[in-house]
Design a protein around this nucleic acid. Structure first.
Length: 595
RNA sequence: GCACUCAUAGCUCAACUGGAUAGAGCAUCAGACUACGAAUCUGAAGGCUAGGGGUUCGACUCCCUUUGGGUGCACCA
């Protein structure tokens, strides 16, 4: 049992015994005291002052006395205002550490018999992946790992927006200007080539739009003008052809999308993400109509006089929403309804998580409400993992204006940066070129991933491309460096298996602090899982590394004064390395042996 | 116009979900290497938590309000 829970239980008992009032254990606040105070844990007793009608320090003393009687491992309790600061005997921490050191997958939670489908990435197949996708993918991957570590069965899936007017734009531009150019001809990744033609389309469209606006001064809306251009008409015709299964159009579409998928795959591999199943909009855009009928039968949807189908959500503060056009065709949300049901057939999941940017919050509110009213068995398990946009110093990214940060470029840039820094320290002269390259990738990608993941998903990230991502301080390389130091000790020690030690009777403050932070790993894993928040693990990993570095600085390990201390500290270091590696693994960040 | 959301050190982020004197990193200044690896460690400086009200024993956290950013409100995807 976690010691916090033990303290909660006994505190609740104390309140009942002393004041005759029964309180919920869970309501007892147990935390770690600020560093100005001594103590391992602190209990807040203000609430019981009211119950007992006694002053907080009195209540504190009375409860403290009770606790000391019940828990023999308490060395002493200091009462400060309404807080009890509890200090445990060194033996308690040593015992705790012994148990941790012997637990193989420390922090991993037992299987929950719950299945989760987790959707992330969701790119369009007319553009290259950019910084926004990077945040999405890193979050999606980390969340998958974290939930698995929490005992869930997780199926990561990806949905491709592979059809529609935007896809036709790049196809049309390629048809007009491409001269049959292939990725090999252009020396570009497939997705980058298609992206190029998407941008070219916008360039072709611009003068035509201007011409339309000049000829018709009454049209002031740019979008309305675009619709009247010959180029857009052509694109729309192409879309109709696609929908009519025109062989030539379909062939071109398949070819260009094939290039894109090849390109995406390379980026996925670099980032280390993978999906269990892919869904394609082209195969699903007609789905969902059956559900509309079902909804009509159940009376949750309404057919308007113009034949369109709507749902009225004004009773919960949302608007009316169209689910089927008056011409009977489906809209985006219709397809999402269908996809949700399809996924349920595929995986029979209890929960489904969508990793999608916060600009779609309203959409998901509506979607979830629709599923709920349709009576989907998993309706309660739907969750939109909404994350903040990545902004650049001069505002947000606009793909048309060329202010996008392309994922591949950023990755390359980070690896180059890591290579430069590493080489300037000249510690890896004996590495083969392959080993060196692998290390640079571990460091560069680690830095990039950590930079993104350390921020709470909900918050907007500001990314300044001119200032390259730091490799010092609160970064992955800092943590990786800590790890390599520990590995270095073991190379010097000459053995991975360390002889058993005799439990020390006293602990240095740094040793106690290190054990304490390691002790809190499971709690952190659970918190990260419950809140779908990878950033708490990033912060935690940094905390462990930081505390280890202090320990390493102040407490000699291999040069310890006596052999038993050496053994104990080696075990301590080894466990710290294990935790660091485990936590970072959940974030998708690898640890090098040397750097 | 309506709704949602954010605002913490010069900059980038924390704060155990209402607890103690709000913490880290970067940048700045000052220290520690004949090394268990200095990509490290130790200090200093930096804050009326955007402003104002309220609830509470106690508020960065909850409520109201003002200001200032962001996003959404299509028979688009």
């Amino acid at each position: 049992m976690y010691i916090e829970n033990l303290l909660r239980k006994h505190t609740a008992d104390a309140v009942e015994q002393l004041y005759g009032v029964c309180i919920e254990q869970a309501t007892v606040t147990v935390s770690e005291p600020p560093k100005q105070f001594t103590g391992d844990f602190s209990i807040v007793v203000f609430p019981y002052a009211k119950i007992s009608r006694k002053a907080p320090p009195v209540v504190g003393s009375e409860i403290a006395q009770y606790l000391q009687q019940q828990i023999p491992q308490i060395a002493n309790c200091q009462v400060v205002q309404g807080f009890i600061n509890v200090t445990f005997i060194p033996n308690f921490w040593v015992d705790a550490f012994n148990a941790i050191a012997q637990t193989p997958n420390y922090g991993q939670q037992s299987a929950k018999n719950q299945t989760i489908v987790l959707e992330y990435c969701g790119p369009n197949t007319n553009k290259a992946l950019h910084l926004g996708h990077i945040r999405n993918m890193l979050l999606g991957y980390a969340t998958t790992q974290i939930l698995r570590f929490n005992g869930y069965t997780v199926h990561p899936v990806c949905v491709y927006n592979d059809r529609g007017i935007n896809i036709c734009k790049s196809m049309l531009a390629w048809q007009k200007l491409g001269n049959n150019e292939t990725p090999t001809d252009a020396g570009l990744k497939g997705d980058r080539l298609v992206d190029k033609y998407y941008v070219l389309f916008a360039e072709l469209l611009k003068p035509q739009t201007e011409a339309v606006m000049e000829a018709n001064p009454t049209i002031t809306d740019k979008k309305a003008a675009e619709k009247l251009t010959p180029l857009m008409r052509e694109a729309e015709e192409m879309l109709l052809k696609w929908e009519a299964n025109d062989p030539e159009t379909r062939q071109l579409w398949a070819k260009m999308n094939g290039w894109v998928y090849e390109g995406f795959e390379q980026t996925y591999q670099k980032l280390g993400v993978a999906f269990e199943k892919n869904y394609y909009e082209s195969e699903m855009y007609l789905l969902g109509k059956k559900l509309i009928q079902e909804g009509l039968d159940k009376g949750v949807f309404v057919q308007e006089p113009d034949k369109s189908v709507q749902i009225d959500l004004t009773d919960i503060g949302l608007d009316k929403k169209i689910l089927l056009r008056s011409n009977g065709t489906s809209v985006y949300i219709t397809q999402d309804l269908g996809t949700a049901m399809l996924r349920h057939q595929d995986f029979a999941m209890n929960k489904m998580i969508y990793v999608v940017g916060n600009e779609q919050e309203y959409h998901f509110k509506v979607l979830f409400e629709c599923i709920k009213r349709l009576g989907g068995t998993f309706a309660d398990g739907l969750f939109h993992l909404s994350y903040g946009m990545v902004e650049l110093p001069d505002g947000k990214m606009k793909s048309r204006e060329g202010t996008t940060v392309i994922a591949d470029d950023l990755i390359t840039q980070m690896i180059d940066e890591a290579a430069e820094q590493t080489q300037s320290l000249s510690k890896i002269a004996d590495f083969t070129p392959t080993e060196a390259q692998q290390l640079f990738e571990t460091l560069g990608l680690g830095a990039l991933k950590f930079f993104i993941l350390r921020v709470n998903p909900k918050k907007t990230i500001l990314f300044n491309p001119k200032e390259s991502i730091d490799l010092h301080g609160f970064t992955a390389p800092f943590i990786q460096y800590t790890y390599t130091r520990i590995r270095s000790m073991f190379r010097k020690y000459g053995n991975e298996v360390v002889a058993p030690y005799t439990s020390p009777t006293d602990l240095a403050p740094e040793e106690r602090e290190l054990i304490s932070v390691i002790y809190h790993y499971p709690k952190t894993v659970i918190e990260a899982g419950n809140n779908y928040d990878a950033s708490v693990l990033a912060n935690y990993a940094y905390q462990v590394a930081k505390i280890f570095n202090k320990f390493y600085n102040d407490c000699p390990v291999l040069n310890a004064a006596d052999p038993n201390t050496q053994l104990f500290r080696l075990h301590l270091s080894q466990t710290a390395a294990r935790i660091i590696q485990s936590a970072m693994q959940l974030l998708g960040i690898n640890m090098p042996e040397r750097m």
